[in-house]
Amino acid sequence: METFEPEIVAFCCHYCAYTAADMAGSKRISYPSNVKIIRVPCTGKVDAIHLMKALEIGADGVYVAGCLAGDCHFKNGNVRAEARVNRVKKMLTELGWEPERVAMVKLSAGMGEQFAETARKFTETIRKLGPGPGKRTGIDDRAAS
């Protein structure tokens, strides 16, 4: 358990969080390498199933990083993403998993520092929670199939 390094997936909006991550990189603001970034054209494209599948096949935590309230390039993709994150939280609770394993964060393109901070905090949260659903038995066979 001491060596547990969480694997985290972050769905990042092309217009804000992804750019923020870029900025963090170019300014050499470090953030944990545990976070694997998936760029999406808008967080509105992220469905509940993506979050669930990520957990199912091995992610220990997943978050969606979209634009600040009112700033979505496609009007309300971030609002919808948040609703879906909440839905997944509810499902996880019903299933006896920790709802903290999924989260919604809102950033603007210029918030490189905040991006790194969010990544660090989320990684710590997940580290405390321990391995996620997909890290339990049998998953490798299934994920491969």
Binding site: M52, P133, G138
Partner: peptide
């Protein structure tokens, strides 16, 4: 798809598949 995924997560919780 979502329900299937949820049921998988449930079984993983029990250590089953």
């Amino acid at each position: 798809g979502l329900l299937a995924s949820a049921l998988h997560l449930n079984h993983l919780k029990q250590g089953k598949t």
